[in-house]
Design a protein around this nucleic acid. Structure first.
Lengths: 139, 139
DNA sequence: TATACTGCTATAGTTAACTATAACACTATG
DNA sequence: CATAGTGTTATAGTTAACTATAGCAGTATA
């Protein structure tokens, strides 16, 4: 877990996404309590209200439940709901755009599957040519 | 070109990305003029200032040039600059996150990169199991 | 000169995201 | 009761994104 934020999306949403990731990864199990609003706020140096907002999204999605005075707990079935819902969202809304980008950049499956997970540098030296998609030739 | 916007990113940036896509796709060639600020603003029902802001990003990136009274024109070398820069950005910043998501959802990057293009419905029926990453077993 | 295109600036207002600070309400422990 | 942990609400301020509206400045044509 890095302590930094992406400028391309609001913090509260990134926060929500991290919890989702932790549930999917099994780091947080059903019945577990989420780290407290104040703790998270302190750890990430973020306003408690921002954390709360992220957590509330999870409540609204039915993934998490609040017990007053105790904390927030992951509901039973949260993970399978997530697996289904997030898959659908990803395949339907995100992947098409991503795939289009990949093709536009002339990147190959090989290229992407090579270093993939742990890599965060990037050589930008694809195996093909410099002319990726000479298909459309508008007049 | 659809006339709609994504809530996950500011309009001016999406606008910039569309022009970039058109350059990469060869729809807009070097030397060509961009559609005018006012035209785009009218067509997409968006404020001219928002369009201008998107265009200015392109100018700042050195992809586009302004000729007062005439319009904005795509610079020579814009496409190869883009191919290099966007590849690097994608491989270094976006793909690692995307790949992590794919794995979390129990999907395989291979499969997505193979078929995928024209699909936008989403079945949520991956070839593996329903338990994607049972690696971590926190106490 | 006038007309009609360009990019661009100026002014001003709305909304969403985020912030700081404080206090309230509930639960468990002592 | 007090204490210390939860989530939650209230108040108020900053910033970025977007909007509406108007006008300036340059270019080309007539």
């Amino acid at each position: 877990m890095d302590r930094e934020w992406n400028d391309s999306q609001p913090i509260y949403r990134q926060l929500r996404d991290r919890v989702v990731a932790m549930i999917l990864d099994g780091v947080l199990k059903e019945g577990d309590s989420l780290p407290s609003v104040r703790n998270v706020a302190a750890e990430y140096r973020v306003n408690p209200l921002t954390v709360l907002k992220g957590y509330q999204e999870l409540v609204d999605e039915g993934l998490v439940e609040t017990r007053r005075g105790l904390g927030m707990f992951i509901n039973a079935g949260a993970r399978s709901m997530l697996l289904q819902g997030e898959r659908q969202k990803f395949l339907g809304e995100e992947w098409p755009r991503i795939h289009a980008t990949i093709q536009r950049l002339g990147l190959t499956a090989e290229e992407l599957l090579k270093g993939a997970t742990s890599r965060s540098s990037a050589d930008a030296t694809p195996s093909k040519s410099t002319e990726p998609n000479p298909s459309k030739e508008k007049g």
